[in-house]
């Protein structure tokens, strides 16, 4: 079967208007400024080798910080240093008001711990059932974040979670639950889990963190984060 002449290349049966619009469309690339800003948001991830096997600054962060999280929101995505002094990228406005607080379960393993890691079906190209994932302990009372943040993307939600890690890991954990609820097959499921594990550690719930890390390893045996998680947990 032969491929038809593309609109942009014209042809006897292609109206000039169509050829003109499609030709223009092929040249409609973002500006250099757009791409520079995008690169700035991605930060050090751009310098990582394939598979993220060598993250910048990895050796310099402490054992806890070694989890490293990449999550960019409306702005930046990778933040490897979780420490309280980690500077926030300058172009990350926190213009979206914080959602109502959600208190995670204080001492028991929360439902999210026993739930399978939500699939990154998008990245894998296959549907991943969520299995017996239970709602979070607070899900029944949790407001519908989507209704209050109708345009929030996965990246934005996880960036809020990442940003909350240092000062309020409980909120960070709650935000990862929101992500799981709203993006059950989101492409950033792995990043969400890394944030959640770090949040659990910061809450002193090391057993929970270890269990969740183990679930992560089962779900994503080839993940670039797995080694980092292994080295950061007791």
């Amino acid at each position: 079967m032969s491929e038809p002449v593309r609109f942009r290349d014209g042809g006897a049966d292609v109206p000039p208007e169509l050829a003109r619009l499609f030709a223009a469309g092929t040249k409609d690339l973002p500006s250099d400024g757009d791409l520079r800003r995008l690169a700035a948001r991605l930060g050090p991830v751009l310098e990582s080798p394939a598979g993220g096997s060598a993250w910048p600054g990895w050796a310099t962060v402490g054992k806890l910080a070694a989890l490293g999280v990449l999550v960019a929101g409306s702005a930046v995505f990778f933040a490897l240093n979780f420490g309280p002094h980690t500077p926030r990228p300058p172009d990350v406005p926190d213009s979206v008001p914080a959602p109502p607080e959600v208190s995670p379960a204080p001492s028991v393993v929360p439902p999210v711990m026993s739930a399978p890691v939500a699939g990154d079906a998008a990245a894998n190209g296959s549907a991943v059932p969520l299995g017996s994932s239970a709602p979070s302990a607070s899900s029944s009372s949790r407001p519908n974040a989507a209704s209050t943040r109708p345009a929030e993307t996965e990246a934005q939600l996880l960036e809020r979670a990442r940003t909350a890690l240092s000062a309020d890991p409980a909120r960070a954990l709650a935000l990862t639950e929101q992500h799981r609820a709203h993006f059950p097959a989101g492409v950033l499921a792995q990043e969400r889990e890394v944030i959640a594990i770090e949040a659990l550690k910061r809450l002193g719930r090391t057993d929970d963190a270890a269990q969740r890390a183990a679930a992560f390893a089962r779900r994503y045996p080839n993940s670039a984060y797995r080694k980092k998680l292994n080295t950061s947990l007791p």
């Binding site: 469309g25 409609d28 690339l29 973002p30 757009d34 791409l35 800003r37 995008l38 948001r41 991605l42 991830v45 751009l46 990582s48 080798p49 394939a50 598979g51 993220g52 096997s53 990449l70 999550v71 960019a72 929101g73 409306s74 995505f77 990154d120 998008a122 990245a123 345009a151 993307t153 996965e154 990246a155 934005q156 492409v187 950033l188 792995q190 990043e191 993940s223 670039a224 984060y225």
Partner: peptide
């Protein structure tokens, strides 16, 4: 970036979705 535009993603959301793509690339490229 351009692909997202043509797929009907609003201009405001295109940068975020591009970020998501390259995060996946980072994770999966290996």
């Amino acid at each position: 970036w351009r692909t997202f535009r043509h797929l009907g993603i609003s201009e405001a959301d295109v940068p975020d979705l591009c970020q998501e793509v390259f995060v996946v690339v980072h994770r999966k490229l290996g």
